[in-house]
């Protein structure tokens, strides 16, 4: 999957003037953001700043009203189907069918993603999130933490090279946090891309290689994390809440 498409592009996500508005509702004002390939970009912002909306647009779940968007080097308006194979998404919604077993959930999504070696891949992925012993239990009977690990497994089942994480740490238990950290670490080592939103500025700052701050649907700062000291970043973040 990850070999297809514009591998040569320098940016995993290129958004220019991306907006979502309809009548009196403006969900996203105007976002310009280039997410570099091979890094971990953290998108900070207040509740309602448009983080989730932007991520949903990048994931192809929402159609932007205006602006241009390229994901994995592909035009989001024309090559949506090709883009989807590159993306792995984790959000607060689990995307799991409660009455299917862990394995059946993965098999179902794996078929839709057209994963080649499906059975082996499912076993491999379940082992990595430490759920292989519960492969044949229904997702409904899982604890919150186990279900979250299964949701993470679902997200990287099809070997995506761009990971979109919407407030991924909210409500996670310790094992799920460890699983997620391993996944992000693995992506970093493979020079794949992670774009995550968070309002936890401590956690976000420590793991990010790039930092973007969103305020009222606009990117007001975007810098490599190394260019900022912790205190400088805190000041910027505080200012964005005004």
């Amino acid at each position: 999957m990850s070999q297809a498409g514009g591998e040569g592009a320098a940016y995993a996500v290129e958004a220019h003037g991306v907006a979502k508005r309809f009548g009196r509702i403006t969900a996203l004002h105007h976002v310009d953001l280039d997410v570099p390939r091979g890094g971990v970009t953290a998108l900070f912002g207040h509740n309602g700043a448009g983080k989730t909306t932007f991520l949903r647009i990048a994931a192809g779940l929402m159609r932007p009203t205006s602006g241009s968007l390229r994901v994995a080097g592909l035009d989001a308006r024309k090559e949506q189907a090709a883009i989807r194979g590159h993306l792995g998404v984790v959000s607060h919604e689990l995307f799991l069918y409660g009455d299917l077993t862990a394995l059946e959930n993965l098999r179902f999504y794996g078929r839709l993603y057209r994963v080649a070696d499906l059975e082996a891949r499912c076993a491999e992925v379940l082992t990595r999130v430490d759920l292989i012993h519960r492969a044949n239990s229904r997702a409904r009977h899982f604890s919150r933490g186990m279900a979250q690990r299964l949701a993470i497994a679902r997200a990287f089942l099809h070997r995506p090279d761009i990971l979109l994480l919407d407030e991924p740490y909210t409500g996670l238990d310790q094992r799920a946090v460890a699983t997620l950290n391993e996944l992000i670490e693995g992506f970093r080592e493979a020079h794949h891309t992670v774009l995550l939103t968070t309002h936890d500025h401590h956690l976000g700052f420590t793991m990010a290689t790039d930092i973007a701050i969103l305020r009222r649907g606009e990117v007001i700062h975007h810098t490599p994390a190394a260019a900022l000291s912790r205190t400088e970043f805190d000041a910027l973040y505080e200012a964005s809440l005004q």
């Binding site: 779940l61 989807r84 998404v89 689990l94 995307f95 069918y97 409660g98 839709l112 993603y113 057209r114």
Partner: peptide, 17 residues
């Protein structure tokens, strides 16, 4: 109803189908 639970329909829409 099953598709709405856990946002499954969105999960299906994320796949290239």
């Amino acid at each position: 109803a099953a598709e709405q639970e856990n946002g499954c329909l969105a999960g299906v829409l994320l796949t290239p189908m």
